[in-house]
Amino acid sequence: MPDPKSASGGTDGSAGEPYRVMVVDDSAVIRGLLTRSLEKDPAVQVVASVSNGELAIKALERHDIEVVILDIEMPVMDGLTALPKLLAAQQGLQVIMASTLTRKNAEVSLRALQAGAADYIPKPSSSSELTSADVFQRELLDKVKALAKASRPNRPASTRPRSLDSRRPLPPVNLAPKRTITLRKASAALPRIIAIGSSTGGPQALLEVLRDMAARVKLPILITQHMPATFTTLLAEHIERATGVPCAEGKDGEVVHAGRIYLAPGNYHMIVESQGASTVVRLNQNPPENFCRPSVDPMLRSLARIYGSSLLTVILTGMGSDGQKGSMEVVEAGGTVIAQDEATSVVWGMPGAVATSGLCSAVLPIQEIGPSVRKLVMRSAA
């Protein structure tokens, strides 16, 4: 997962105050382990720990909370039922869904993201696994700190992005001093393939962008979204239902065809290579890049080598800087990069990294990205 400093802008809370978290899980053992994992970092304080959604709502009346870690399956009130009530009870609250990697829980987690949850984390299936899971602890802390920082209001409510289904404003990322963005000219070549990278907030952003353009551009679209296995299977199904365009996890050796969407499967990097006159998908389990597998950078590197100036890349909301190095190679090969803007990103890490590196031809609100891509693809070659 992304480096903590790049994900949250630093290791300390704003003005020295620790980030305030509530843990909601019906298992006292898991609550204790989550609390200890979080409080290993002095920038995080667990101010409430409760066993169900009803108690979580009551806890909001007594505590100033910025992030909730919310289990799915609980007695009295489950996580999906509690989610809209928590969001309504406190404006700016960030909720991370925690679930084991079953298909049922992954489906519920995706529904929760569409209903306003900011992120999700796959929960190890046993307390012993959780105790030894350094990767899980780092991912948990990174997400909590990045999202807690985002919950601290730094801009007018009118500029805040909204979740796709609930239309509830989502709080923006904390604004550091404004960084200069220098744009470059888009490639004169017509795009022949589209690559998209995303992470935190990505499922919602992907659906908005793809609904607007996937069926119209008639090009192959390759996506790397930071997600574990099972989640990526379900996300592909959601994308296909939302767009009407065939979408599935990429399969090793399959030929890339126009009019299809290929999603990197969880725990595999998805790249492409030339095979005669065709381009084929290749999957590998090479070491994580930017703490991620799948990672955006290897996908972009492989695409840039084959498509050069005909590659159009879009970097959406997400923690860290995955996609920055790959976008540099896209630009060096003559391709075009578009990034989501800060105001509509849940976390302006990945898009901010490419935008402030001078790699982008446009930095746009989420609602303008689909139309911009359509315009670049459909313009006359003349």
Rank of each mutant, 00 (worst) to 15 (best):
V209T: 11
L210K: 05
D212M: 14
D212P: 03
M213C: 15
A214F: 10
A215C: 03
V217R: 07
K218R: 13
K218Y: 05
L219Y: 14
L219C: 09
L222I: 11
Q225A: 05
M227G: 09
M227E: 08
P228G: 08
P228V: 12
P228S: 14
P228C: 04
T230H: 12
F231Y: 07
T232S: 15
T232A: 00
T233F: 12
L234W: 04
L235Y: 03
A236Q: 06
A236K: 09
E237W: 12
I239P: 10
E240F: 12
R241M: 15
A242S: 14
P246W: 05
A248Y: 09
D252Y: 01
D252S: 03
D252K: 01
E254T: 05
E254A: 04
E254W: 04
H257E: 15
G259V: 00
I261D: 02
I261E: 02
A264H: 00
P265W: 08
N267F: 13
H269Y: 02
H269T: 02
V272N: 08
E273V: 00
S274Y: 05
S274M: 12
Q275C: 12
G276W: 06
G276M: 13
A277D: 13
S278C: 13
S278R: 15
T279H: 02
T279W: 02
V281A: 07
L283G: 01
P287H: 14
P287S: 07
P288F: 07
P288N: 11
P288C: 04
P288R: 02
P288T: 00
P288M: 14
N290P: 06
N290R: 12
F291K: 11
C292K: 07
R293I: 05
R293C: 09
R293W: 07
P294V: 08
M299I: 03
M299L: 13
R301P: 09
R301F: 14
R301C: 15
L303K: 06
L303G: 06
A304D: 06
A304E: 03
I306P: 03
I306D: 03
Y307A: 11
Y307S: 11
Y307L: 05
G308Y: 12
G308R: 12
S310Q: 13
S310I: 10
L312R: 03
T313Q: 04
V314I: 15
V314P: 07
I315W: 01
L316V: 01
T317K: 06
G318Y: 07
G318S: 05
G320I: 03
G320F: 02
G320P: 08
S321R: 13
S321H: 11
G323K: 07
G323L: 05
Q324N: 09
